[in-house]
Computed example of a mutant assay.
Amino acid sequence: MSFAMAQDLLRLAQMAASRRGGVSLEGICTVFDVSHRTAQRMTEALDVAFGNVTTVDAEDRRRYWRLDARPPERLLAGLTPRDATRSEADAEAVLASLSQVMRPGSTVAPSPGVTDAVMDALRGPFRLRVIYGSVDATPRVIEPLGLLLCHRSYLVARQPSHSETILNFRRDRIHAADVLNESLVFAPSFTLESYAAKAFGVYQDPAQYGEVIWRFAPEAAVRAAEFRLHPTQVLEPQDDGSLIVRFTAAGWLEMAWHLYQWGDKVEMIAPDGLRTLDEGYQRPDFEALP
């Protein structure tokens, strides 16, 4: 059983927090339909992930695990450094499971089984055999390198039999995934951070990669400065109160989607292709800024 995305662990945490006496190994076996040894591993994972777990040996000669505190600060502090850095999404998921956090807006949810397999493969790291695109597609073996988390989540991976090109696989289009007992070695030059920084969103296009320059009107400058639009951004406040933002990336369509929210309060100085894409769509009647 994988606890990569903390799905079963979150459910267990809810039980341990909401039940006055906590949860026992026997109760875990019944609720999750797992073996006694798996239930033990689940309580071990609960101890690792949270700093506020206590155990009580009751009169029925059973041991109970209880999650004592619910405030989000305590929950975050309880994560070990390794688990905290593994995935920011895990921490958010823990809080969401305890009704402390909601992520509004539209999202596309991948299959839980696929998510577990992906996270197991990333932690290995191991190769994955996936069914991608259509349910009757030919299986392909890929080498997972990392995840890009947004309204659609993407698995960054190579498909060695096809090429060494790094690809983005939509996780919601992965219909099945099996972890192979085949380890892989990351290229020394690859980092997920530098790879993701080549795009404004997730779309990678070498032909569009280059300097991007936007000028935000004075009435939008303060709001725009609050955004981390891109990891390489440079902010240049102007004498007239406007703000110029420079960064280097690709993905004009995703840039255009973002810029539409600013109405006529932003000017595209570069590149020419983005400016052409945005012409005629800068509305003056939006009531609020992003």
Score class of each variant (00 low, 15 high):
residue 74 R to F: 08
residue 91 A to I: 00
residue 92 E to L: 11
residue 88 E to I: 09
residue 67 L to E: 00
residue 62 R to P: 00
residue 93 A to M: 08
residue 84 A to T: 03
residue 64 Y to H: 10
residue 70 R to Y: 02
residue 63 R to K: 15
residue 65 W to R: 02
residue 72 P to F: 07
residue 66 R to D: 05
residue 58 A to S: 12
residue 79 L to W: 03
residue 85 T to K: 05
residue 77 A to S: 03
residue 96 A to G: 14
residue 61 R to A: 11
residue 99 S to Q: 15
residue 83 D to S: 06
residue 99 S to A: 15
residue 70 R to N: 06
residue 97 S to D: 08
residue 89 A to F: 05
residue 72 P to Y: 04
residue 86 R to D: 09
residue 69 A to W: 09
residue 65 W to N: 00
residue 68 D to P: 04
residue 86 R to N: 07
residue 81 P to W: 08
residue 87 S to A: 09
residue 70 R to Q: 12
residue 61 R to S: 13
residue 61 R to H: 15
residue 76 L to D: 01
residue 97 S to C: 12
residue 88 E to L: 11
residue 95 L to N: 13
residue 87 S to K: 08
residue 77 A to T: 09
residue 91 A to V: 02
residue 92 E to Q: 08
residue 62 R to N: 13
residue 73 E to L: 12
residue 77 A to M: 03
residue 75 L to G: 00
residue 72 P to M: 11
residue 65 W to E: 00
residue 79 L to R: 08
residue 71 P to E: 15
residue 77 A to G: 12
residue 81 P to T: 07
residue 95 L to V: 10
residue 88 E to R: 13
residue 95 L to G: 07
residue 86 R to I: 02
residue 67 L to V: 12
residue 87 S to T: 06
residue 75 L to C: 07
residue 91 A to F: 01
residue 77 A to P: 03
residue 59 E to A: 11
residue 85 T to P: 00
residue 81 P to L: 06
residue 67 L to P: 03
residue 94 V to K: 05
residue 77 A to R: 13
residue 70 R to K: 12
residue 96 A to N: 08
residue 65 W to Y: 15
residue 76 L to N: 05
residue 85 T to Y: 02
residue 90 D to C: 03
residue 65 W to M: 02
residue 58 A to K: 08
residue 66 R to V: 09
residue 58 A to F: 04
residue 78 G to H: 01
residue 65 W to V: 01
residue 76 L to E: 02
residue 59 E to F: 07
residue 98 L to T: 12
residue 63 R to I: 02
residue 75 L to E: 00
residue 63 R to H: 05
residue 70 R to C: 01
residue 69 A to T: 11
residue 86 R to L: 11
residue 90 D to Y: 01
residue 74 R to C: 05
residue 92 E to S: 10
residue 88 E to F: 04
